[in-house]
Design a protein around this nucleic acid. Structure first.
Lengths: 115, 115
DNA sequence: ACCCTATTTGGCTATTTTGTCAAGTAGCCA
DNA sequence: TGGCTACTTGACAAAATAGCCAAATAGGGT
C-alpha cells in the first residue's frame, strides 16, 4: 500500500509552532486583548489575572512565534499584534465551538469563503 | 491599575483545544491530506510515515477536537475533514512563515479581507 | 550613585504530551 | 469456530509545557 500523496512534516514545522503558540486560553486572551490596541505587560497581567512572570513567558511564546511585536517606551514594554490576520482565524475557530456536536457540518459562520 | 477589558479564559477553553489539536506537524499533515478526500488509517500512516499507533492517537486528538469525522467501512475506518473551514486558516498560518522576520508586516497573503 | 518601577529569567516541581511496544477489540472470510 | 486484517488502547519512559518564587536586568527620576 503506497502513500497517496507526499506529506512533508518539515514544511509543517513552523505552522505547528504558530498553532502551538495560540493553543492556550491565556495566550488567546492576550491576542484578543491586543486586537484593540497595544498594551504593556502590567495591563495584560491585570486583564488576564495571573502572575506577571507567567504572563511574561506567555508573551515571549507569542513573540517568538511571530504573532506579537514588542516596543519599549521608558519603563514599559508595549506588546502589539504583528499579524492582525490571526484574528480572522481565531474568530473562525471560535465559531466552531457551537457546532461541534453535529456531524459533518461545515458551517463556519466566521469564514464564508471556504465551503 | 485596573483591567482595561475583561478577558474570559473559559471562553477561550475550546478554541485553545482546537489550536492544540493543530499544533503538531504530523497532525497538520493529516489535515492537509484529508483536504483532498477521505483516507483510512493505513493510507494516512503510509503518507505521514510513523507507527500506526502513533497515527491512531493523532487522529483521535483531531477527532475529539471536532476537526475530523470517522466512518467505518468493513475493516477500514475512514477519516474525513469535518469542518473544511480549518483549511483557510491553516493556509493563512502557512503564509505567515515567509514574513516572520519583518516587524509589523501585516501582509498575510492567504486572507486579504482582514487588514 | 541610589532607589524605584517594569519586565525578564533561573530554578524548581507538577502536569501534559509524545511515541513505542504489546495487548485488546472489531469486522470479514473460510 | 478460527484466523486474518485494521485499528485502538494500556502501560510506560522521555520530553515538553506551565506556573510560581526569587533573583537579575533595564530604564527613569532623584
Amino acid at each position: 500500500m503506497r502513500s497517496p500523496m507526499p506529506i512533508s512534516l518539515t514544511d509543517n514545522e513552523y505552522p505547528a509552532t504558530v498553532f502551538k503558540a495560540l493553543a492556550h486560553p491565556a495566550r488567546l486572551g492576550v491576542v484578543q486583548m491586543l486586537a484593540e490596541k497595544e498594551f504593556c505587560v502590567q495591563e495584560i497581567t491585570a486583564a488576564i489575572g495571573s502572575d506577571i512572570s507567567t504572563i511574561s513567558r506567555h508573551l515571549s511564546v507569542l513573540r517568538q512565534s511571530g504573532i506579537l511585536a514588542s516596543r519599549r517606551e521608558g519603563n514599559c514594554i508595549y506588546y502589539s499584534l504583528r499579524t492582525p490576520c490571526v484574528l480572522s482565524f481565531i474568530e473562525c475557530v471560535r465559531s466552531l465551538s457551537a457546532e461541534t456536536s453535529e456531524p459533518d457540518s461545515d458551517a463556519c459562520t466566521a469564514c464564508g469563503k471556504v465551503k
